[in-house]
Every structure is written in C-alpha cells, then in structure tokens.
Write a protein that binds this DNA or RNA. Structure first.
Lengths: 202, 202
DNA sequence: GTCTATAGAGGGATAGAC
DNA sequence: GTCTATCCCTCTATAGAC
C-alpha cells in the first residue's frame, strides 16, 4: 500500500478521479479518502489540485501502459491476443461496478478543452501508450505500420467501449469491439515475447 | 437558427457542453451565450441545469444519429462506407479546432457515475444510435448480428478516437481506426438504400 | 415572459499554531 | 511535516419587480 502521505494522496486522487473525473472531485474528498488534512495536500503539492491530478495521471498512465503487453504475452496468435485484451477488460469492468478502469480517460474527456496543463499530461500518457504498444508489437514481429495502427485503434477502441459500457452499464460494447477487431488478425503469428528488463526500484 | 428563447438556450447549452462537459459549464455561461438572463433559464426549465442538459443531449442525440446513415448512403461497399465514416469525422474535427463532435460523449464520461439522471439520458441516446444503426445496416442487407456488432464497434471506436484526437490534437487516431476497421468489410456489398420517410416538420 | 438582486452552499486556496 | 480555521470566489437556484 501507499506508505508516505504523499503517495496516499496520489492513490486516493487517482481512485476518485477514475470514477468522477476532475471537476467532480473536491480537495476535501481527496483529504478524507487519503486520511490527510487539507493543509497537507497543499504542503506536498504546491501546485494544488492540478498538480495532484498531473502526478496521479502520470503514475496511473505508467502502470496501465503495462497491461496490454502483460495480457498479450500469453498469446502466440495476434487475433487471439486482441480478443483477449477486450475480454479481459470486460471481465475487469464487471468486477468494479462499471467504474472506468483508469483515471486518464475519465479526466481527459473533461479537460481537453479547459485545463491545458492537464490536457498535455493526458496527451503524454496516451502517446506513451501508443509508442510502448507499437514497440512491443514490433518486438514480437509485427510490421511497424500495422503495429502502430493496431495499437492506436485498440486504445481508442478500449476508451470508447469503456465510455459506452459505463453509460449503458453493460459490457457488451467491450465484447463487441473484440469480436469486430480480432478476426482480421487471426492467423498472424507473434514471435516469442522479449523479457522485460527489470525496472529499477525507486 | 433558434427562434424561441427556449431553443436558443438549448442550442447554447449543447454547444458549450460538447466542448467543456457538464460541470465545466455554468448556468451563467449558458445565459450569456444564449442572450437570455439567468431567470429565463429557470422559467423555461424548472428542473434547472440537469433538465437543460437532458433536453440538449436528447436533441443532439437525435440529430447526430442521422449522420452515419447519411454518410453510408453514398456507398455500395461496406468497407468503403466504414472508411468514409472515420475519414468524414476526421475532416469535420479538423474544421472545429478539435472540439468533440457532439455533446453526448463529452457529458457521458463525466456523469456516468455521478448524475444518474443524465447517465440514463446519455444511455438512451447511445442505445438509440446502436438500434438505429443496426436497423439501417439490416435494411441494406447486412446480417443482423454482424450489423449490431459493427454498429456498436463503430460508435465506440468513434467516441474513443474522438477522445484521443481531442487530447492529442491530432486526427491520426480517427484515420487509424478507419484503416483498421474498414479492410475486413471490403467486398461486402450493400443493398440499395431505403429512402427515409420524411420527418414531420415541428 | 423578462430580468435583477441575492440567498445559500460549496469550491480552492492560505495562514499560522502546533 | 501536521492540522484547523477561515478567506474569497463561483456556483445553483430563488424571489420578486417589471
């Protein structure tokens, strides 16, 4: 769990924002959920609410960027892998009362035209996901252009399906996206996964 | 243009909310943009801000639900039609400074877990789009199950690609989604479009 | 039906004791 | 580094004159 006050604030903020977005979360809510008083929030984050959101998004973005490779690692057929990504997302969502999986999508929709600072942070996260996913598929033998389009479409497809699923309270949009996207990649072999270099412990 | 005060309020609200979401738009903003004073907003909409959003979403939802059939009407090949949907969306977005195309997606992300009343309205709009799109493709000779999955995936793909495009300020996600989704439908013929029964003028 | 003034609640942020 | 009290602003909504 989060040990320092600073970490517990970021964890609480990410958890609240993935459900309620940016404007829907008050500093008092973050204080209550993290156990820290309001003053501590401003002590650790001079930049206030926007800075907390920035760091929470960056943290969550880094963590969630590892999920697609983690799921795909187990597969040798690209079509089955794509199907698995969406099925896994559907299963997860059913276990979380249809909360968004991660705060980046929830917040990005809200701030893309209003809080330039956060738009840039969310944009950097999306770019990192696309670059990371593309590099991963290339390492497993997929052609670069195909890898980039596939990664972009999968991430966009996931975000859109999450939006429909949360709004309709049904995982059907996630399953439908998998059924539509997967077939055309069926039969395309994936090379053996390259083991991740262990990240340096902070 | 909007003639009555009531209509101009709804038009202004839809335009503001597609850019800034629900919480990001204040009643004063709607008053200023529509030209009506605050008091008139509550005179015409007893239910306050939530009622304005509800009606604005329902109006916009009905209007935007006609767009996909309108684009697809011109095509006889399903693959080309799917490509055209995403290319058209990309072209439109470039002309609007990357605003979301319609307010439903912007608002839905924000209210899915917070304002139950609006979640239901947005959900009804999405359901209407899926049902309408499915019926349209079925009328043009597509198998029912395929039509439903295709429609769901296209709508989800559009919403997700809009989110990425707005956040990254680039239409590439829309073009990539088209490039990924279209090929598998190439060669599938569409039957001649059925002319729409003219809507009764209000 | 139009418009102004204001109530009442809640937001982000700060000061300063401990 | 922790915590409380409080400031000031903005928000939704209402009252009531015109």
């Amino acid at each position: 769990m989060a040990r320092s006050t600073r970490e517990s604030i970021l964890t609480a903020a990410a958890e609240l924002m993935r459900r309620r977005g940016y404007a829907g979360v008050a500093m008092k809510d973050i204080a209550d959920a993290s156990g820290a008083p309001i003053g501590s929030l401003y002590h650790h984050f001079r930049g206030g609410k926007a800075q907390i959101a920035r760091e929470a998004l960056a943290n969550a973005g880094a963590a969630y960027g590892l999920l697609i490779p983690a799921v795909v690692d187990a597969y040798t057929d690209l079509g089955e892998a794509v199907q698995a990504i969406f099925d896994q997302a559907a299963d997860d969502m059913e276990g979380t009362a249809f909360a968004n999986m991660c705060p980046v999508g929830s917040v990005a929709a809200e701030v893309a035209d209003t809080v330039e600072e956060l738009r840039q942070t969310a944009g950097a996260v999306f770019e990192g996901w696309i670059a990371g996913g593309t590099a991963y598929f290339v390492a497993r033998g997929v052609d670069e252009r195909r890898a980039r389009d596939l990664t972009t479409a999968v991430i966009g497809g996931l975000e859109g399906a999450f939006l429909l699923a949360r709004t309709l309270r049904s995982v059907e949009p996630l399953r439908a996206a998998g059924r539509v996207l997967a077939p055309q990649y069926r039969g395309m072999a994936l090379a053996a996964p390259v083991p991740e270099p262990a990240a340096a412990p902070s």
